[in-house]
Amino acid sequence: MAENRDFFYRRLHSLLGVIPIGIFLIQHLLVNHFAVYGRESFEQAAGFIHGLPFRIVLEFVVIYIPILFHAILGVYIVFTVKYNNKRYSFFRNLMFTFQRISGIITLIFITWHVWETRIAIGLGSAELNYSLMENILTQPFMFWFYIVGVVSTTFHFANGLWSFLVTWGFTITPRSQRVATYATLIVFLVVTYIGIRAIIAFAYGA
């Protein structure tokens, strides 16, 4: 029975990247964006999310388990490739490699980010408020680490959305795949703006 599960795992990997992880990412960046409207605004929004019923269950089902699965299989995928961008310098091949590089950067970023925020709050060594992020992001190194991390994450999401459409058989023709490239580019720009704007708000004030 354990044979021939790869197809299922790879399809699940593709699905989880968008639902729920992609949806969570957008939700997370939107809530962070409240920082742009000021300290109270952010704390109210974050407090609302923090106060959701069954929060621990939601966190495990929507965030931790899917990301863990996506990350573990993802790292395996990254290391079973023979990269050949030098010889075949096509756009999609470049995106293919960027997808894998951004996946690794995102994994490092998320691990650090979760450690510094959610786990620190869970252990009681930090408190969920505006100052937590303000203190992190006013350090120049952390500011750039977060910028790189967020851009890498949004790229991985947007380009992954393109692959998702192919993997699930939505975009079959070259034309639909080309249009999807432009559409996911817009997704990338919009989501990146939302994320970066919040980082700037924390670092330099709204």
Partner: peptide, 24 residues
């Protein structure tokens, strides 16, 4: 759908660029 099947594709799309017969 067996191991080693279609899910091994990572959408680098090099194949369609290099195919000498122009197969889509």
């Amino acid at each position: 759908m067996e191991d080693g099947g279609i899910h091994g594709c990572g959408n680098s799309q090099n194949c369609v660029q290099v195919c000498p017969k122009g197969i889509p």
